[in-house]
């Protein structure tokens, strides 16, 4: 059984976001990029566990990005995985990203495709489901556990106000979130091994975006906090009612 793990490069979680060119571009100056946490902590590590337990035979990684995405995909390889493919194009349109991955994956015979529940930059959470449609596979989103036996996946996923356990035959796309696995830190051996693991670069297909980001905006600044004495909770409750109108 072959697993493909989709890896996105995103700004570090502590990044202070800033925009340039009259708020039309994300200013990457001084920004540290990391593996999207959901891809790394949950999708990648669960794939590795499935290989370690003998369920999967291969774990390959794919990312859509220009050459500047290579440190991140190397870091992912240091955590684990047999080889990686970088599709040499960039887009923030989820349709394009998914179509690029589908174009590469359609002839590779993957049984399971794992991705994070969303990337922490554009927060669309769409790539997995678009990919499933393009590869004609089933899709289960927001999974917190995944086991495979006899070609059938058993997946726990979030539903409104609880969880559900689903069964589905492979091939399948699963988006992963907390609970799926415990994060791993790459060790020295992994880092050394990652240097020589195959990282193939393929050209992006010619795919027209269906959406474009026109501009960005920062959230309105808070006008300042109103401090209330710890002995006057009645005042707080009254303000929440008459001023903020939330209770």
């Amino acid at each position: 059984m072959k697993i493909l793990v989709c890896i996105a490069q995103v700004p570090d979680t502590t990044t202070k976001i800033a925009f340039g060119d009259n708020n039309t571009t994300f200013n990457t100056a001084g920004v540290t990029f990391i593996i999207n946490p959901y891809d790394e902590w949950y999708a990648l590590v669960r794939a590795l566990e499935l290989k370690e337990s003998g369920v999967a035979t291969a774990v390959n990684l794919v990312t859509v990005g220009k050459a500047d995405a290579e440190p991140v995909i190397r870091k992912a390889l240091a955590i684990g995985g047999d080889e990686a493919v970088r599709i040499d194009t960039d887009s923030n349109d989820p349709y394009v990203v998914a179509a690029q991955i589908a174009e590469y994956a359609k002839s590779e015979g993957y049984d399971l495709v794992l991705c994070g529940k969303e990337s922490i930059d554009y927060n669309n959470g769409s790539v997995g489901a678009i990919l499933a449609e393009m590869l004609d596979m089933n899709y289960i989103g927001f999974a917190s556990s995944l086991n495979i036996e006899g070609g059938i996946a058993t997946v726990k996923r979030e539903i409104e106000g609880g969880e559900e356990t689903d069964a589905c035959a492979l091939p399948l796309v699963v988006s992963c979130q907390k609970g799926m696995a415990e994060a791993r830190i790459p060790n020295m051996r992994g880092i050394m091994a990652a240097r020589t693991k195959p990282l193939k670069v393929v050209a992006g297909a010619d795919i027209k975006p269906l959406s474009e980001i026109v501009s960005y905006e920062m959230p309105p600044a808070k006008t300042g906090v109103k401090m209330i004495s710890a002995d006057n909770m009645d005042e707080l409750v009254n303000l929440l009612h008459s001023d903020a109108k939330v209770i």
């Binding site: 349109d93 989820p94 349709y95 998914a98 927060n123 669309n124 959470g125 769409s126 790539v127 997995g128 489901a129 678009i130 499933a132 449609e133 393009m134 899709y139 289960i140 989103g141 927001f142 996923r157 979030e158 539903i159 409104e160 975006p209 269906l210 959406s211």
Partner: peptide, 23 residues
């Protein structure tokens, strides 16, 4: 933009070649 919509809308977007805004 909830667990149902996030599973269904992107598939629909791929099926109809429709651009999408999530959230």
């Amino acid at each position: 933009h909830d667990v149902t919509g996030k599973a269904v809308a992107p598939r629909l977007s791929a099926r109809l070649k429709a651009g999408m805004v999530a959230g």
